[in-house]
Amino acid sequence: MTSPLLTARGLAKNYGPRAACADVSLDLYEGEVLAIVGESGSGKSTLLGLLATETSPDAGEVHYRFRDDEVRDLLTLGEAERRLLMRTDWGFIRQDATQGLRMPVSAGGNVGERLMAVGARHYGNIRATAEDWLARVEIDPGRIDDSPKTFSGGMRQRLQIARNLVTQPRLVFMDEPTSGLDVSVQARLLDLIRTLVAELGLAVVIVTHDLAVARLLSHRMMVMKGGRVIETGLTDQVLDDPREPYTQLLVSSVLAA
């Protein structure tokens, strides 16, 4: 058995006297999709920020296994190395696509940005790669020069996915990627994510309040409440046979269609 890709131990973050996240530990293996669910304010997004080293924790540590199999502490990583990691080996799909995209820049420029950031200097190749990725996320390559401002919400999310996956990352963080989209668009997006995750063998940490999304995408899930993880397990196990009263409440409050 290989060692985990990402390991967190005892992560904690306080905002003033309030604990947003307390004593969270987890292991994530390559090709595994982990869902973090919980109600609003339960510390899901804070945890994601901590794992992605966008926020610094008050306690705990995060280790990551690099491509050369070396496991390193992310919190002691230099700024330059950390940023390089984030734009090559990692991806971050934001809830609000306008935050994850560069809105004044064309779709092609958005997809090409990471390539140019790691040194691609051939316009034709960058453009060909961008076209290829637009097609893979089901955006008409003919719209490569259009601004994402002219795109629908679903297209923006797909563009964000293409922009993040273009450098072939191994680990992608997703923060509520499907919220705010109507159900049919949601279904197509989930389908796309599931296909890409399987094809590319991505490890994914996905934060969602939508249990259906967790059931569809994830292998394992963590239930959070008040900044603490109250239940973890295989997705179908947690959803079909919840142990904690809070999880039972969460599962039973899903409206059956």
Binding site: E79, A80, R83, R102, V105, S106, G108, G109, G112, E113, R114, M116, A117, V118, R121, Y123, I126, R127, I144, D145
Partner: peptide, 16 residues
């Protein structure tokens, strides 16, 4: 950090 990829994004946009 010498991160100048953005500058090329501008040139890319010009060409596009």
């Amino acid at each position: 950090l010498g991160e100048y990829g953005l500058m090329h994004v501008k040139l890319y946009e010009d060409i596009a």
